[in-house]
Amino acid sequence: MTTRTLTTEARLAGGDSAVETPGDPAAPVLPVSRARATWRSWRGLVYQLAGILLAFLALVIWLNTADLSPIELTTLAPAALWVYTVEHIQLTLLAAVIVLVIAVPLGIALTRRPLRFLTAPVLAIANFGQAAPAIGVVVLLAFWVGFGFWAATLSLVLYAALPVLRNTMVGLQQVDARLIEAGRGMGMSSAAVLFRVELPLAVPVMLSGVRTALVLLVGTAALATFVNGGGLGILITTGVNLSLTPVLITGALLVALLALLIDWIGRVVEHVARPKGL
């Protein structure tokens, strides 16, 4: 041990303590590689953000240079666009919060021993429900609870709860059963094992479910306009109904860019929140 000259960079080198030699092949690696590794892990995210910003810039330039009719100019006034976008984000975030509050605890409960027999059927329903067309859910629910913001929110919640629920359950299920046993074997209570072992290890899968749900929500919130729920969807319907192609394109692009931006934020959170050592 005393003759060991390993640098911290050699920490990843495998091998048993007794067989590791000072001339470990991983030892000469320079700190430069750490910066490079960091850059590599962030590279995709940087490119994604750059792409989103470029597309947005292109849209702004196009709107400022295109030959727009007075109706189009009114509809696409920056103040109006801002209101639609805020409405859209409100719908999305509200639904997302409700989804998290409902689906995560439900997913945890369904993987606990007393309810574990329900895991498989619920996963099947979740997968099946994901295939239902969003527009159908939105409109049917509106007929049931009435048109407006809350009908839109409710249908969004129903729709987005499925991926979060599914990923919570899958994330908890894929935790190595031996680790749970090791925890219990050391005298951790089942709650301690859940909060200190199972949930931290399920975080990456759960977060990716949340991100999927958010992206779905941004897309589906565009349908809220059909039940008078507000959001950027109004640009698309107006564009279609009045044959105002620039309005239609702007609406569609804004929804897409918002979805990509939310996806980006989700990825950043996943990247940062992923437990070290995984």
Binding site: R178, L179, A182, S189, V197, G277, L278
Partner: peptide
Amino acid sequence: DTLRRGIGYVIQAGGLFPHM
């Protein structure tokens, strides 16, 4: 749980928690 805190337990491959 109290009993198990007073008994050491080793499983195959150590059963270490990867996030700690």
